[in-house]
């Protein structure tokens, strides 16, 4: 915790330094102008998304030619942050950073002033890999054992995940569609509560993102049995993917930077390029490694748009399947 603080402090002070640099080089990129850019983040301050946003702010400013501020707006389940970006003047100075829960799932399931297509992804930062895990002494220790037990006794296994329809719940729904198995779905307050319930033996399985259980896996308290991704996770290299186990279910959660679609395409392109340039710098890569932000394969506009379209299709499929039930 203490160390993480220090990192944020480093990132923040680096941001201040780059601000100064930003003003000096501002004349080189006149199209974005000198007004500061705001990255709105629909989550609370201090989380992993926050750190990623601050890495962008610290490193992209000199390339974008102006200061970059990070604004945390967790109000109304994140919808206040999206509303703020949607209402802002479409000049590219108010942009959004979020995973698909806010821009796709909540947009599809709630009444909003925008459609999924109104968000224009410009940078694809990283992919989070939802991971299923159990207590180390649980009778289930692999994907195969889970599926076998769930087939033998439907609805006997309790599966803890964070909010319903969140990125650590939808993959479970997809797997159940694929295999026909049935589990008891237990929403929790988040990764922390899921982990406590697993450790206390109150529930059988849980889903989370790898960084939050790495230390428990390494200490032998829990076993990660499978990852819903095309490739294994860097931090949990011994854990197989569900594809390896023969189930064609992969549901990585892309973390994207968006503008609202009314922002002119030239500005979208320009922002995308200057953020990419900033994140490719050595400082940004060092910061990312320190903070486990996973920014080692940042992709630009085309990749971001493609993955956003893909994810939208998948989310719509899962939601439709849920509604049929």
């Amino acid at each position: 915790m203490h160390i993480k603080r220090a990192k944020i402090a480093t990132a923040v002070s680096a941001a201040f330094l780059t601000c100064a640099a930003g003003f000096a080089t501002a004349d080189n990129t006149p199209s974005l102008g000198n007004d500061p850019i705001r990255i709105v983040m629909p989550y609370g301050a201090g989380g992993s998304t926050d750190i990623t946003a601050r890495i962008i702010a610290a490193n992209a400013a000199e390339h974008c030619g102006t200061r970059i501020d990070v604004v945390s707006m967790p109000g109304a389940g994140g919808m206040e942050g999206l509303q703020f970006v949607a209402d802002a003047e479409p000049n590219g100075h108010t942009i959004l950073m979020a995973d698909y829960s806010a821009t796709i799932t909540q947009t599809l399931t709630e009444e909003t002033d925008w459609e999924v297509e109104d968000w224009a992804p410009i940078v694809h930062l990283t992919d989070w890999k939802p991971t299923v895990y159990v207590k180390a002494d649980h009778e289930i220790q692999s994907i195969e054992e889970w599926v076998a037990l769930a087939e033998a006794e439907p609805n006997s296994l309790v599966f803890g995940h964070a909010d319903p329809l969140s990125l650590v719940h939808l993959p479970l729904v997809l797997l159940e569609m694929e295999t026909g198995i049935q589990n008891v779905h237990l929403p929790t307050t988040g990764g922390g509560e899921t982990r406590t319930m697993i450790l206390g033996g109150h529930i059988d399985l849980g889903m989370t993102l790898p960084p939050s259980i790495v230390s428990n896996v390494n200490s032998g308290e829990v076993t990660a049995i499978g990852v819903f991704a095309d490739e294994r996770s860097d931090v949990l290299p011994d854990v197989p993917t569900f594809k390896e186990a023969g189930y064609d279910v992969s549901f990585e959660a892309p973390l994207l930077v968006y503008t609202y679609s009314s922002v002119p395409e030239s500005i979208q392109q320009e922002l995308s390029e200057c953020i990419m340039k900033g994140l490719e710098s050595d400082t940004a890569q060092t910061m990312s490694t320190q903070a486990s932000a996973g920014l080692n394969n940042v992709q630009g506009l085309e990749s971001a748009q493609a993955i956003y379209r893909d994810t939208t299709v998948r989310v719509k499929e899962v939601l439709a399947a849920i509604n049929e039930e």
Binding site: A76, G77, G78, M79, E80, D163, P164, P187, T189
Partner: peptide, 18 residues
């Protein structure tokens, strides 16, 4: 907390997060 549905907000979007 269980279904994720928005409730008791009287249609005020700002209250969706509680």
């Amino acid at each position: 907390p269980i279904t994720g549905a928005v409730r008791l907000t009287f249609g005020i979007p700002g209250l969706a997060g509680g």
